[in-house]
Design a protein around this nucleic acid. Structure first.
Lengths: 343, 343
DNA sequence: CCATTTTCTGGAAACGTTTCCAGATCCTGT
DNA sequence: ACAGGATCTGGAAACGTTTCCAGAAAATGG
């Protein structure tokens, strides 16, 4: 309907003052009250609103931050996105969502695409972190914050969590409620979370601190419900387990479904824990005992880091960490009566 | 690390040719092979990549499309976002996510914020559609596509679905499997989907076509699991129902949890249907019988509409509709033996 | 071999904004 | 009343790109 947007030049003409004064008046910097009044009026009459592109070009600021993620369907990333949005929006920043899954060959390519300068900063949560990605991040023309592995040695800002320790908490909880035969359904080992969680499980089930009797791992192809269902079937078919730790809430749900197929009740016959403490886990039946890795909190922190960087950005790289903590819900409970409850 | 990005001017100097020729060479339009070669080499040496802002200013195109939504946590919108992304990315468009929930006073304000021209188009899925919003959309300086109510009379592109008919399908299914006492858990009536679904339920349970015995409605404060749980408690406490239609998968999950609290089994004692056919409904236990409204499809269609508009955009407004269809899963089954199965 | 078209190139303008700089006006203190 | 400063204003440049225009060079046709 509106033919074309009004420009600052038109406002200046309408107000009968110079372009420079017009700009100043609208920003309230060093303009007389009379001038401000005139310009405001002219701007209002024309329905002026400043053009983001022109301003960006001049100010060398786009007021946009990108959030890049492998699979936006994963509830963890949705939580992060929400948190990032909440922190950035009040500062006038928009959030551009980039999916590395389908459009760009690799996360490194995506980081390199920043060189076109459409964004003031990037928050990325990569599944895999290789040298190519690290190099791309270090050469990026805008601040990049990584959610995932700590990259302190490369001078890259990062927000991490100790998912290995989180796995330890899950195992400890299962032992405490009297479980002894513990299975682990992990995602792909060549991913950052997959590797860390495997380390955590192995550590928790190997040393003398492990009071259980048996521990075994089954690997799912992906961090999804479908992959968890398949891996769960394979693992449970072998029998003999009274608890399963899943590397993920989605995998945990898959495992519970597999248990259902085999007629095992959860938590009666089988206790199951997840990880990430997602919304979907909370509403699932049974609700999931899950290790929270503070997704929202990590998103918030990442947003703050990138906000600090785009301000001045000369300070050294910072690493922040969010500690994991276990949230106990319905999917785990004391082992049936045949074993007495551990202290 | 990189001090500052190379500009086209620097490439031109390096290649020893004019700025104009440099631009043409890189675009392959009307430049001699020798020129192209020289410029390409210079650009490669300097690691040049064109600046998005400068290009946007000149071309009056940002190559960005906004997707605005009340609550990005709702899985329906995540599905739409994914679909939109998949359609737009291959055409070189980025997607900017805007949440109307926490940052902007109203959706109308958000639409008005488009006047700063940071985006070439908008896809919006408003919960409520009032005159203010319609006006804002009609005055918007860029094409807007609405996912939700059809706005043909205002000349606004829209993608709609017939959720009232969808509700009819759910009720018909319940009657067919022998349910007779049907409850409805709806969201707020002053929202577009809330109103449409109420209409659908009332129509399906009032005429002579309704072969059931009883129908009643309970309203939840919001389209969330928590609100569904509360509304479900209120509804089921009154007793006497053998089926519940929920306006939403999230509400349906809340209802199933409420049923669980009261010792009712689903689908044995109570059949429950959802709507939206979300991923979470598929993996829930019991998996949800749900009316698919084609969320991904609607997202795709909206993206195509906006893509057509930013191309030339002089064609008349278009309305596309996606038909609802019921997907039967575990949460509904034939009524227990006391009643014989209806034809 | 000249006239005409085609191909290619460089200068310059334009997109809309912010901000530096210099000049003008006003006020203040002595 | 006048020097000095503070306050305000307008001209102009700059950000990085694309594209119009005109002119030069090359190719084509007779």
């Amino acid at each position: 309907m509106t033919s074309s947007r009004a420009t600052l030049i038109q406002v200046a003409e309408r107000a009968g003052v110079s372009l420079a004064s017009t700009s100043r008046a609208l920003h309230g910097t060093g303009a007389s009250p009379a001038m401000v009044e005139r310009v405001r009026a002219a701007a209002a009459e024309l329905g002026y609103s400043p053009d983001a592109t022109g301003r960006s070009l001049r100010m060398k600021r786009t007021f946009q931050v990108a959030f890049a993620v492998a699979d936006i369907g994963n509830p963890v990333y949705v939580e992060m996105l929400t948190a990032i949005h909440e922190v950035l929006a009040p500062h006038g920043y928009r959030v551009v969502v980039m999916s590395t899954g389908h459009t760009v060959a690799s996360t490194a390519d995506l980081v390199r695409s920043l060189s076109s300068g459409f964004v003031d900063g990037l928050i990325v949560s990569p599944l895999r972190t290789d040298d190519e990605l690290v190099t791309a991040i270090m050469q990026a023309p805008v601040p990049v914050v990584v959610i995932g592995r700590s990259l302190e040695q490369h001078g890259i800002d990062s927000v991490s969590t100790d998912s290995a320790a989180g796995l330890g908490q899950a195992v400890a909880h299962l032992l405490e409620i009297g479980r002894r035969q513990i299975g682990f359904v992990n995602g792909p080992l060549d991913t950052t979370p997959g590797a860390a969680r495997q380390r955590g499980f192995d550590a928790a089930t190997s040393g003398p601190a492990f009071t259980g009797e048996h521990a075994e791992t089954e690997r799912a192809d992906d961090f999804t419900v479908a992959a968890g269902l398949e891996a769960g079937r394979r693992l449970l078919a072998r029998g003999g387990l009274d608890a399963v730790v899943a590397a993920n809430d989605l995998l945990a749900i898959g495992v519970i479904r597999a248990a259902g197929e085999l007629g095992l009740s959860v938590p009666g016959d089988l206790a199951v824990t997840g990880m990430d403490d997602t919304e979907i886990g909370k509403v699932f039946q049974p609700s999931l005992t899950s290790v929270s890795l503070g997704s929202a909190e990590r998103g918030r922190l990442a947003a703050r880091l990138v906000l600090d960087r785009v301000g001045d950005g000369v300070e050294p790289a910072r690493q922040v960490a969010v500690g994991p903590h276990l949230v106990v819900r319905e999917s785990t409970a004391a082992a049936p009566s045949k074993e007495k409850r551990a202290r």
